[in-house]
């Protein structure tokens, strides 16, 4: 479960995220939308432990990620918006590296890596150094590495960027499957159709504040007030 309690992040005098409170229970697929610069990536980076909130608390699976960061991160899978990898490591080495960081044993890592390589269909190039990877290859390797330790929470920033249709399908199905298995999935995206297709609940952030939170049926009801299109709702809420 993910809980954000009155989370604010300021950079100097600029408030990127303003008093954000939100709960994503286990098994829910939450879509986080907003225009560029609305505060999506800042929120996600705070959840992943890359930024410290100025005020407020983030609780991941019952652990405050400021006071108990190790316990909180142990059950989290994070996929950043830009899949930066160590150029000089191969994809497989990167996955073993991440497995080690999650204190997994060699046998456990090996089984998980083989399974993920097959699942994400990356076997043809996983043994090449990542410096030669395309954006899509990097993205698939990053997502595969994030799942190596059987997480209970997934925090994903723009997972579909740079993926070809086949890879996008694999990722969509994987995320949906993880959500069905009881994992809380928090995904930011710019793609309104993807959000509508995958998410149980959607939040729209604008200027650091939540402008809308609701289930798909809430969204459908809201859409009726406009022309029935999600795009119109989104543009109205983020004006």
């Amino acid at each position: 479960m993910i809980e954000l309690r009155h989370v604010t992040k300021k950079f100097g005098s600029f408030t990127a995220v303003d008093d954000l409170s939100l709960t994503v229970p286990d098994g829910e697929f939450f879509g986080f939308l907003g225009p560029n610069g609305a505060g999506k990536t800042t929120t996600i980076k705070m959840m992943a432990g890359l930024f410290t909130p100025t005020t407020g608390e983030i609780i991941l699976n019952g652990f405050n990620n400021a006071t108990h960061p190790i316990e909180a991160k142990m059950t989290v899978a994070y996929v950043p918006d830009q899949p930066f990898l160590y150029d000089k490591l191969t994809g497989r080495e990167f996955m073993y590296f991440v497995g080690g960081l999650y204190k997994m044993g060699k046998k456990e890592i090996k089984e998980s890596v083989e399974e993920l390589i097959e699942h994400f269909e990356i076997g043809d190039w996983v043994d090449k150094r990542t410096e030669d990877y395309s954006q899509g290859m990097r993205q698939r390797t990053t997502i595969a590495a994030a799942l190596i330790h059987e997480p209970k929470v997934m925090i994903i920033d723009e997972p579909m960027v740079g993926l070809d249709p086949k890879s996008a399908k694999i990722v969509r199905e994987t995320l949906k499957q993880k959500s069905r298995q009881g994992i809380a999935v928090f995904m930011s995206t710019h793609s309104l159709p993807v959000a509508e297709e995958l998410c149980d609940r959607i939040g729209i952030i604008n200027n650091g504040r939540l402008a809308f939170v609701g289930t798909r049926s809430d969204l459908s009801a809201y859409k009726e007030k406009f022309d029935g299109k999600f795009e119109s709702v989104f543009l109205e809420l983020t004006k």
Partner: peptide
Amino acid sequence: EGKAFWSQRSSPLN
């Protein structure tokens, strides 16, 4: 460590 440092910063690593 470069931009790939996110992998350590977001992991359960002191």
